[in-house]
Simulated scan of single mutants.
Amino acid sequence: MTLLKIQGDLTEAKFLERLNRFTARVFIDGEEQLAHVPTSGRLKELLLPNATVLIRRCIPNPKRKTCFDLLQVLSQDGVWVSLDSLQPNAFMERLLIENSLYDFRNIQRIKREVKYKNSRFDVYTVDEDGKEGFIEVKSVTLVEEGVAKFPDAPSTRGAKHLLELIEATKEGYQCSVVFIVQRNDAKHFTPNRDTDPQFSENLEKAIESGVKAYAYTSIINRSGIQLQKKIPVVL
């Protein structure tokens, strides 16, 4: 099974508070330390006082204000959740390279971060018939009563990407949006209408226009991230 390994060793710590979007205070080895939070998501249901987290010590860098990266958190339900919003993109690339996804089994060539008009899509693909396509990858951390939801904060950029996928589809590209759920306890995925009605509306429009939507759960541990299973996308 495909495994995307985490570089470096993870150490357990206690979460204290989030100072801003990308900086948190944690408690480790009897001391308070600052840790970088690698996502702009709200994570209000996850980053709770005294929550168990896994952090990684960084290579000393005078340009950094923090010595650690906060990479995972243990949810109140005892599920490990990855907070690294860049990890799903690298994971999706690995899954495509290793031909691990049935939905993308005919992909022959891939390239990351390819420009399309005024923006960039996460992955550009070419299948065995020479058909070009784009894949936009979204990191999902919010799960409520078995339902994975995205986004957990309004995402103007995410809503814009969906409209651009629609335009690319009209031009003949095979386009998809893939939701990588960075935890293993979701039964299905749905857009988070309460938090971002525009994203949800655009997702419906995209699917109606021929954009494919997929969601996959994953197994998170200290070693990295592994594919668990495909789950339904419910609008």
Rank of each mutant, 00 (worst) to 15 (best):
L10N: 02
A13D: 04
R18M: 02
L19D: 12
I28A: 12
I28E: 11
I28Y: 13
G30Q: 08
E32Q: 09
S40R: 11
L46M: 05
V53H: 02
R56K: 08
R57F: 02
I59T: 08
K65R: 12
K65E: 15
D69N: 13
L71A: 10
L71F: 12
Q72A: 02
W80L: 13
V81N: 00
L86C: 11
A90F: 15
F91P: 01
F91L: 07
E93F: 09
D103L: 07
D103W: 07
N106C: 05
E113H: 09
V114D: 11
K115H: 10
K117V: 10
N118T: 14
R120P: 05
D129A: 13
G130E: 09
F134K: 05
K138G: 08
E144Y: 11
E144P: 11
V147H: 11
P151L: 08
A153I: 13
A159Y: 03
A159V: 05
A159F: 07
I166C: 08
I166H: 09
E167T: 15
G172C: 01
V178I: 13
N184Y: 10
A186N: 05
K187Y: 01
F189S: 03
R193P: 08
D194F: 08
D196H: 07
Q198C: 07
K205C: 09
A206S: 12
I207M: 14
I207G: 11
S209Y: 12
N221L: 01
I225K: 00
Q226V: 02
L227W: 03
Q228C: 14
Q228N: 14
I231G: 05
